[in-house]
Design a protein around this nucleic acid. Sequence first.
DNA 1: CTGAAAGCGCTTACAG
DNA 2: CTGAAAGCGCTTACAG
Lengths: 375, 375
Amino acid sequence: MYDSENDSEPGRGMERENLGSEAPATVRIVDIARMAGVSTATVDRVIHNRGKVSAANLARINAVLQRVDYRPNLIARTLASGRQYVIAVVMPRFAAGEYWADFEAGVAQAEAEARRYNVTVRRYRFDQYDGASFEALLATLRDESFDGAVLATLFAGRVIPFTAELDARGIPYVFVDSDLPACNRLAYCGTSSFDAGAVAARLLCEGLEPGADLVVGKILHRGDGGSNQCRERERGFRDYLERHDFRGELYDVALRLDDEAYNARRLDELFAVHPSVAGAVTFNSTCYILAGYLAARPARRVRLVGYDVIDRNRRMLADGVVTALVAQRPEVQGYRGVMSLCGWLVEGRRPGTVGNLPIDILLKENISYYTNNII
Amino acid sequence: MYDSENDSEPGRGMERENLGSEAPATVRIVDIARMAGVSTATVDRVIHNRGKVSAANLARINAVLQRVDYRPNLIARTLASGRQYVIAVVMPRFAAGEYWADFEAGVAQAEAEARRYNVTVRRYRFDQYDGASFEALLATLRDESFDGAVLATLFAGRVIPFTAELDARGIPYVFVDSDLPACNRLAYCGTSSFDAGAVAARLLCEGLEPGADLVVGKILHRGDGGSNQCRERERGFRDYLERHDFRGELYDVALRLDDEAYNARRLDELFAVHPSVAGAVTFNSTCYILAGYLAARPARRVRLVGYDVIDRNRRMLADGVVTALVAQRPEVQGYRGVMSLCGWLVEGRRPGTVGNLPIDILLKENISYYTNNII
DNA sequence: CTGAAAGCGCTTACAG
DNA sequence: CTGAAAGCGCTTACAG
């Protein structure tokens, strides 16, 4: 029944025998078929649980599988199977130099690599400051067909019910930006937003008196209370302050994305009323707004900590206006979000559910090397 | 001559035509062969510059190649060609929990991934504190056959002449740990050691008076002046101090790897003679030695900065004994060192020559997430 | 339920 | 110099 021992194939077969003594010859489907006395098609059915195999053969094949440590050749599998996969990436729209452009770079790299496994990436974009635009996008997604999704979780309240629909459709999804542990996600690729808040607090407070006051710069959202990410960071930030007997005040200031004059007025007011402010923080990537204001008023000594290494922040850090940046490897989030789904779809390889990324700290001294995070 | 237009193949061929209007059908070698009126073998010869092709056919095939943007299917190529590659990784021996164990983890991951491209990894180890052991290893390597090498450059003076031999043998090599720009390396995967020295200086000095004195902990090497990496870091460190009007003194202290009593004596002496010492640094991964000493003497307030997130350092950072660690992603160095060589050998894809990695800063607040650097 | 056969795109002897 | 043919390991209709 097991005739592999004295089975002499021509040519190639002999080589295998010889190799056998040196390197452990890898076992192929034909080898298993021969050992079990069946055809390769039947082995394939068992390996993929496609059913339609007699109990006797199933037992025989499984027995062989048990003792041989079969490792499928994925290269051959991909080449042979014409199966195409589509991954939907649901993310904010962006302009060059903005935070999400870095995320997109990671998605693009993953897209290039996944191509060879017959995986296609499709992007779906929404306005990150407008919950309604996200809702509208979800409506579109209901009519689209795809095999997996990468979801940016900015609008947590709208993401959660949508994932229930995906669950029902049997479509796996991966979160990026911030985690929503209550959902049935295949994985989360991003930092712990809460602890990233604590890191910012530590960096900001390092050089401040315990009684110094702080300002928190914010960009208002339309119809929503800000992104999940920013809320979590602020919680972590405040938590750190409480645990380190901070005794100052925090003043929120609402700024606008592209209205320098407006922002200057608001900040002038604030500093006039509270001259005691010695530190500032923003919980999204727009600390360059505060930095621009402070750069023009060098007399005002304010420590400033923000998030994300986008060009405008990078410059302000290099110039010494920003004290420190906390970063979250957006390009890795994009790359890994797509690739983890790709590995799952193509190879059935389940990624770690929570792949918390490192929380990076950038100072003037190490900022110039902050690149190359993707392997 | 170009008969692809009205060429109607059965089955599969029709599908391609239909796809054509939707997705740009990828062009295969058979397509090119047909367009040029030759066989696939001849196209293959041209694509790989194997010669033995008539001038007329060469011209015809090149003409086709020009206009069709041929992208070889690497999956198929790997499957078809039995070509095996061996990559030699030349690195220090290590015990669990030591710095090079992390490097090894990256090598192992790359090994697992490269397997599918018929690439094998072979390790060659030396004693990182003994130049002679490295020299002996190089002698072994002269008789070994391999297709590419990853070289840890600790003993720069011995690496340099060896790379000349590799150049002569036509074997590509990649540096890790620290760069030697004078060599003809395919790539360098690691941090800028000099600037990593500056980062340590910044972190150490942040909370010190300009007049405070510092101690520099060192482990003596047998027969050599220390690793290239450590020397460069120290240069960068001292350079930073000079540029920031540091006015204290630096005292070297020679410590031993596994002799706590000895180390305590030397440090007791030093602090007795120089009670003004308020900061300490090590340029290799052994700052846990100094940390252990200081942890047992909490009255002595000394800021301590070191390198590399190995377990013992990690604990001392979490406990607040170490102020900050500067890290260099050893696992990424191992992974990328192997994979860049793999990409070059298998796909002819040239990596960026100097892939300087980010210089990471770890504090008590972000240390717990410092993992997951490899994608 | 089962197996022979064709095919994925490329490479490799081999015969001419 | 050239091309027909076999093969890499796996998958997929298809006929039974």
